[in-house]
Computed example of a mutant assay.
Amino acid sequence: MTRPGVPTLVTVRRDASGRDVASELGPGTFLAPRPLLPAADGLHLALVGTTAGLLAGDDLSIRITVGPGARLHLMEPAGLVAYDHRGGTSSWRAEVEVAEGGQLCWDSRPFVVSSGAEVTRAMEVRLAPGARMLWRDTLVLGRSGERGGRIRATTRADHDGGELLVEDLDLTEPDVRELPGILGPYRVIGSVTALGADPGGRPHPSRMDLAGPGAQVRLLETRAPAVERELEAVWQSWRASYGTAFDATRNGPGAAMPA
């Protein structure tokens, strides 16, 4: 059975009083945005699942727009599971646009690719000058005791019109991905990625600086809890650094990100 992919829509702006407000919250086929308690550091929303995880023929689509100077914090209360597709395929797509001076922090939960699933996943990010995004992401190949299905995950982030991050993780062939020097025995891939500005924070041995302003910490493990614990520390450190610098930028024209 194919379920039509009505996109989940989130549009956030900064109003005349300086508050971050949602001008559009459109529930999609699979996810619905839900407001959380008000906070001083921006608008907080949860992306709540409205149906079972990805099945064959499913097309999950998310479109997020953050207006000039606005702040959006997205969190996912539960992970997403792509179940056995029984010969079919599914897709997950996100399009993110952050205007000048805007900020998006997206704290996602694990994306699990069960044995028998075949998924394409694409993240497209466009950042204007002075915009930034912090994204936490974990891919898990298989549920407990499974080898895991097939996934091709692409990420493309542009900043101020230039390429900041272009990545193509082709994990569609289990025999290839399990070779030494690729994934080997690991089936969990966790990342925290800062786009548009140096995240500062505590030093980390797995940090990689991007082609422009930004950095990424990527971890490989055999079990998800170990990755999630270490990523949580990186996430909290980078988020605190991002928030402090963002407040300084909004409140003072000469402020800059920490080195």
Rank of each mutant, 00 (worst) to 15 (best):
P258S: 13
A39R: 11
M1K: 13
A197G: 12
P180Y: 09
L9K: 05
A233S: 14
A56N: 00
G102W: 09
R223H: 02
E24V: 12
D41Q: 13
R109V: 14
P38V: 05
R152A: 03
V166S: 12
I151R: 04
E167L: 12
E167S: 12
I62Q: 14
G145M: 08
M208S: 15
R202V: 02
L210M: 07
L165T: 06
L210H: 06
P174Q: 06
T51E: 02
R223T: 10
A197R: 10
D170L: 00
F111G: 01
G243Q: 15
A157G: 09
P199W: 04
E146Y: 04
F246R: 15
E76S: 14
L9D: 03
V192L: 04
R223Y: 00
D158A: 12
G130T: 07
P253H: 15
Q216R: 15
G57H: 00
A39K: 00
L45P: 00
L141K: 05
L47H: 05
L104M: 08
G254T: 14
V98L: 13
P258T: 13
G148L: 02
R229P: 03
A39Y: 01
Y242H: 15
A211E: 12
I189M: 08
R147N: 09
G214C: 09
L43Q: 01
R150V: 06
L219R: 03
L55A: 14
G5I: 03
V96C: 11
L171A: 00
E228R: 06
P27T: 08
D107A: 11
D107K: 08
P213L: 15
Q236F: 00
D160H: 07
H44L: 04
S90W: 05
A248R: 13
G26Q: 10
P27D: 06
G200R: 05
A32W: 05
W106E: 08
G243N: 14
L179Q: 10
T11W: 04
L31Q: 09
L31N: 07
L47A: 08
G79Q: 09
G101E: 07
Q236Y: 03
P38T: 07
M133N: 04
T172M: 07
